[in-house]
Design a protein around this nucleic acid. Sequence first.
DNA 1: CATGAATGAGAGTTCATTCAT
DNA 2: GATGAATGAACTCTCATTCAT
Lengths: 196, 196, 196, 196
Amino acid sequence: MGNKSLQKRNLIVEAARDVFFRCGYKGVTMKDIVEACGISRGGLYLYFSNTKELFEAVLEQENKTLTSVLESPAVKEASPGEILLMYLEEQKKDILKKKGNLTAATYEYLFENKLVNADTPIKKRFDENVRALEKLIIDGVNEEWMVCESPAEAAKNIAYAIEGMKVTAQTTEITAKTLDNQIAYIMGTLGMVIKD
Amino acid sequence: MGNKSLQKRNLIVEAARDVFFRCGYKGVTMKDIVEACGISRGGLYLYFSNTKELFEAVLEQENKTLTSVLESPAVKEASPGEILLMYLEEQKKDILKKKGNLTAATYEYLFENKLVNADTPIKKRFDENVRALEKLIIDGVNEEWMVCESPAEAAKNIAYAIEGMKVTAQTTEITAKTLDNQIAYIMGTLGMVIKD
Amino acid sequence: MGNKSLQKRNLIVEAARDVFFRCGYKGVTMKDIVEACGISRGGLYLYFSNTKELFEAVLEQENKTLTSVLESPAVKEASPGEILLMYLEEQKKDILKKKGNLTAATYEYLFENKLVNADTPIKKRFDENVRALEKLIIDGVNEEWMVCESPAEAAKNIAYAIEGMKVTAQTTEITAKTLDNQIAYIMGTLGMVIKD
Amino acid sequence: MGNKSLQKRNLIVEAARDVFFRCGYKGVTMKDIVEACGISRGGLYLYFSNTKELFEAVLEQENKTLTSVLESPAVKEASPGEILLMYLEEQKKDILKKKGNLTAATYEYLFENKLVNADTPIKKRFDENVRALEKLIIDGVNEEWMVCESPAEAAKNIAYAIEGMKVTAQTTEITAKTLDNQIAYIMGTLGMVIKD
DNA sequence: CATGAATGAGAGTTCATTCAT
DNA sequence: GATGAATGAACTCTCATTCAT
């Protein structure tokens, strides 16, 4: 694929991303994508054979773009507690921009493609987050900032709770206040107190 | 609607339930339902105009059928901690029978009908669970079984974590062991220890 | 399938027959058939899923309709030589009405579906004709009208020659005179002379 | 057309030949040809505008390549009966290598292009064969090897029978034994006996 | 009420053909 | 000459929905 082709491919993925944002996954047709990127019907098929391939391309690009604070080296200065707080705040922001995330589409996609490929980028991302959280908690405990008897479970619990908030936010109103309270509660379970 | 009609309606809902279990929500067509209940095409339309109405009927019936231990009067004898444990075990069972629940279909339905109706039965059920959990925790604290500074937040946190596990279980393998550990962790955050 | 359905099915087969006559087999689309029988797109699919099924239905009906003189009991009075001549004349007529037969379409169909099912109606018909011809020749020899050392091969040879004329007629002009001469020749190989 | 161009043209025809062998005529698309000869889409169009032109080029080349024993000067030594037998054996071989001949494709082509051009190479070849067979039979009769009252009709009859076997072989199994018997029968009709 | 044949809109997909490079 | 990306027409097939019986 030439350089120009790659450019076009990216243009399509960009347009598709918008469509998936607006319409979820299952409701999207190749025609929708065609119209969104202003190319011809046949032209789209030159790059992607179906919405599944398209969505996977969008996910991949999204994963490249997104980098969690957990992975950013920029936060080295901060204490484990501070990093955890930053991470939770980051998640909060993501949750609140309901219309602007891929959560719904991603779950529709996952429901349709259960376990087919145990190593979906989504699962990988989830696992990475759990691992990073665990390390953070262990550090926090070692440095005596936190109290936690089973960091592995605590990490998972936080990840599950966040996942729960994400999907819930897609289906009902969830306020910033609610999220703030949850953040405080989670910090609390690790023996940390948030000061304003 | 006559008695006979009601019977037929129930028959349809029953058949539809099976289909939604197997195929999720969005992938289901009126044709699928027609074939599943061995009724005529036109006949189905006498009762339901589209899959949305059908799914809502299924959900309603499901909510009638399901009663959580949290609402059952039978558990009055048990201590708050015991009841909480029973509830978590109940959720665990639900999560593990992945293929036999409506989680995926329900979320597909909710994603498609965001906020249209803020008072979906699902939200109601979620809120009721949160309230019941909160009461349980308050009782637990009062009776000095549990330690918790903000029962409201704790209750929500548990509910979110469970929701997170439910959807995650739909998309990746999740083991009984993992769930047991999470249950133990959650109990632990309330100062309770599970003894075998 | 009700009586009315059967009627409609026949109507479709009738219309399809015309189309296959005009356009052969491979060039025909479901759309062509739809337009030819004035029903809706979806309506056609209620009865036939593709042009292959349609063509097979046409062939079947054609085979029901066509009965060779070889099989007709009406010719019992005639001598073997007379019957053979009638059969050859019958074939001649069929060959000459070039536009009005299914030869081209049938061969296109057979080329596409080689050997898949060794027992196509076409092969059966061919074999039946060969058998009937053989019996005729044996009778002719026994009754001393004909001279033939290997009736089985003679029967096959006649059948192949007719098949050859049929396909050739589809692709180039072939005159009645040519066919008459061939008929005379074939009769001659069996020791019979045609008198005007 | 330069020398290099001619080379390329031949390369295309060669590749196309393979495709037509495998897929017949009507089922072949320009895309198939493009893929088969590893040339660019636009490049192919510089030489051929459609599959019809392509197939005609293949036929032409095929006719150049094929030379029947009937036309070969090498057989001058043999008697008419021997030459006829050689010719029939040659046809037998051609018929038996079912997968490796153009019969099916050619007929599909001819069915689609009926009479448009009365002088197709195929018709020419057929006529030449008939003429050569006729001459052979006349010679055979003159030299008193054969018995035949109407060599012209006999020649045509043989040609039609062979054509019949060719198309039949494309659609159903036909054995070497069957062909041997037919050859013996045809020779017999001319008063000749095959000795092993 | 109940049936199921019929409709037609629309999704998916493939290719012949063109054209800027 | 040669390339291959791009176009758009055409075809297949499926369903939601209607309606005469």
